[in-house]
Design a protein around this nucleic acid. Structure first.
Lengths: 221, 221
DNA sequence: ACCTGAACACCGTTCAAGT
DNA sequence: ACCTGAACACCGTTCAAGT
């Protein structure tokens, strides 16, 4: 088999987008977004940094491809549930794939992929809304809101669970001492919840609010 | 007056945190977050870059002070409205101050100030919820959700309205052509809304969903 | 005490030249 | 066609030395 199709003049390339993106995601998991540099990625690929620019026009282009690749891991929920159940499943799936990689939310939030995985996800969410009877305008805005809040939540979650260097106080600790030092009765009462690490509960709360609000808007107006 | 209080040995400082933060915010408006460097800021202050580290331990510390300063511009809505009206006013005020400066949302989102302005804002939102009868746990999570979605929205808004360099296609254009090139019926139907620049309408939709959802949760459970 | 000058250890990106 | 080698124009941060 392996038809030569286009007889590629010169040597076969040692790099390609797919393999580079895969390696970049592994490097991301190992060192985090801050330390993900073109030079370090080139090192891991056994290549010079400049070679990466044959396959990605900029670092931003690489990050966008990484975000697109991450979205490819969302499971298509073929469930025969109602629209609310299908919506919850899609939101949880998006959260899951972002949490699956170190700084995944920041990578996704810093890019705007229009690749097939990203569009397929948006298409699924829109399908749920439109088949549930939402107007096109509401469906589009409901998609934006859902992506927004899911991204925002995972951003906070990954920021809060970041491994802090020795000696530096936890973010929760900094908030606690600042709140207790000032005249903040409401914050004082709620700071245990605000610094809680039960992010599943926080996410499900936001998801409940969102779905509940959308249900009201579906019939009204 | 002007009591010498502590006789400051040596020359009076040419820099202080407040003035530096103010200048940094002006520089941000002029050049954007990407070009906001310690060297450029030092230049504008007539000082060497290293001098900034007498007043801010890191650039992150400076950015946090900038975010804190921005939150100081929220107007205290002393309105005698119901909890929903007060909540809407606070969310709109947060959106307003973030939109007031170039890349304001990204600066705020990349930091976690526990300064008085930030805490005062959180305290206000929590006050609305708790006085409306929300449980402490729900109030705390509703605050997180509100800040989340307001930040996420302004992040998207400022990303979409960024001045693009010549020749580079608009983000909306890229989305449009990608959608029309593939099998995406739902996206095709909604892409006019998704690429709409009526961000007020998008924000008010999300605010409606949020408030509507919270109203249901207040009594229930 | 506060700032300068200069360095350290990096960045992303470009591009002639090799193969 | 693809990659190397080397450079360009920067970064954030540190710190001896000056005043």
């Amino acid at each position: 088999m392996s038809s030569p199709s286009i007889p590629s003049r010169g040597r076969p390339p040692r790099l390609d987008r797919a393999k580079t993106v895969e390696t970049a995601l592994e490097l991301l998991d190992d060192v985090g977004l801050e330390a993900l540099t073109m030079r370090r990625l080139a090192d891991r690929l056994g290549v010079q940094a400049g070679a990466l620019y044959r396959h990605f026009t900029t670092k931003q282009d690489l990050l966008t491809a990484m975000a697109e690749r991450m979205l490819g891991d969302v499971q298509a929920s073929t469930g025969s549930e109602d629209w609310e159940g299908r919506l919850r499943a899609l939101a949880r799936a998006m959260r899951r794939v972002l949490l699956a990689r170190r700084d995944g939310a920041r990578v996704f939030g810093g890019t705007h992929s229009v690749g097939p995985h990203t569009l397929a996800f948006a298409e699924s969410v829109l399908g749920v809304f439109r088949e549930a009877g939402f107007k096109d305008e509401d469906a589009a805005r409901a998609l934006m809101t859902l992506v927004n809040f899911t991204l925002g939540h995972t951003l906070e979650e990954q920021a809060a669970t970041m491994p802090r260097e020795d000696g530096a106080p936890d973010e929760a600790d900094r908030l606690r001492s600042a709140v207790l030092a000032g005249p903040y009765p409401h914050l004082t009462a709620t700071v245990p919840v605000l610094t809680s690490t039960d992010f599943d509960a926080h996410f499900e709360f936001a998801l409940d609010v969102h779905v509940e609000g959308l249900r009201r808007l579906r019939c009204g107006a």
